[in-house]
């Protein structure tokens, strides 16, 4: 009975199966580190990584780098959100702007942020503005595309109702089309977040320390330079954990809460 309940939970609750495979991975890792004859410089034991992780937080390094990285990514996301909002509203109000935004998106969206790094260094140097530029590029286009597609996909009768209510075009966009596009823009924000998080870590590694901090990417870079593999793994684990928490908890919960209102079909698909 108990056994069948565990099997049921394994197949029906994702967190149970994930936990199981994480545990399996850790066991495999530890076995390789202990019995595999691999140098600890290449593959440290799980305990060493845990110690490096705790030490990193105790001496404040990991915490300050995390706060720095999260602060800069939040600023980047906020800038992207404002830009995406302004551009999509403009695109809704004028066909000329719509075509201009379309051309800009088609050009910029496929361009990997890493390809822009040399240019960004020339334009912005290697400080915070450069990292911000990378984040904004990574996140803006997916957010903009989703926002626009959400507005385009809004049922035409919403706009009809706005016109019947004698609302101006701007009010229809702000009060009707924007809320109608909310679930899609949330999906865009989710994609944007993932891209921006990866871009941020890469940019921090390339640009190095900005003042006293350099973020988690710079932390990884330093650990590699010092051949502190356990510290390197601690940083990787933290980056993964932050990504999982934001994706799995924040966005999942937000999506379920809002998709439920916006459309029940979307909720089913999300589940």
């Amino acid at each position: 009975m108990k056994q069948s309940r565990i099997i049921d939970a394994f197949y029906h609750k994702r967190w149970v199966s994930r936990l199981f495979f994480f545990g399996l991975l850790l066991a495999l890792w530890e076995s390789l580190a202990v019995f595999g004859g691999i140098s600890p410089l290449l593959l440290p034991r799980v305990g060493s990584v845990l110690t490096a992780f705790v030490k990193g937080f105790q001496n404040g390094t990991l915490l300050s780098q995390t706060v720095f990285s999260l602060g800069i990514i939040l600023l980047g996301l906020a800038i992207s959100a404002v830009l995406a909002l302004l551009l999509s509203v403009a695109a809704q109000l004028s066909l000329f702007c719509d075509r201009a935004v379309d051309a800009l998106t088609v050009l910029s969206h496929p361009l990997p942020g890493i390809a822009l790094l040399p240019l960004i260094v020339i334009w912005f140097g290697t400080g915070a503005p450069a990292v911000l530029a990378v984040i904004v590029h990574a996140c803006l286009w997916s957010l903009l595309m989703n926002l626009q597609s959400g507005m385009r996909d809004a049922p035409p009768m919403y706009t009809d109702l706005g016109r019947i209510f004698s609302m101006s075009k701007l009010r229809i966009v702000l009060e009707i089309l924007l809320p109608a596009a909310f679930s899609q823009s949330l999906a865009g924000m989710r994609i944007g977040w993932g891209r921006a998080w990866r871009a941020l870590i890469s940019a921090e590694m390339v640009f190095g320390a900005i003042g006293a901090n350099g973020g988690l990417g710079w932390y990884l870079f330093k650990q590699r330079a010092m051949m502190n593999t356990a510290g390197l793994f601690a940083g990787i684990v933290l980056i993964t954990a932050i990504g999982m928490v934001v994706e799995g908890l924040l966005f999942d919960k937000l999506e379920k809460a809002t998709l439920r209102k916006w459309n029940a079909q979307g909720l089913k698909e999300a589940q």
């Binding site: 049922p155 009768m157 919403y158 009809d160 109702l161 019947i164 009707i176 809320p179 109608a180 909310f182 209102k261 916006w262 459309n263």
Partner: peptide
């Protein structure tokens, strides 16, 4: 003055 009621069930704003 001229209000239209649509065929679709989804004419109420879902938010």
């Amino acid at each position: 003055e001229r209000l239209m009621v649509f065929q679709s069930f989804d004419q109420l704003f879902p938010w």
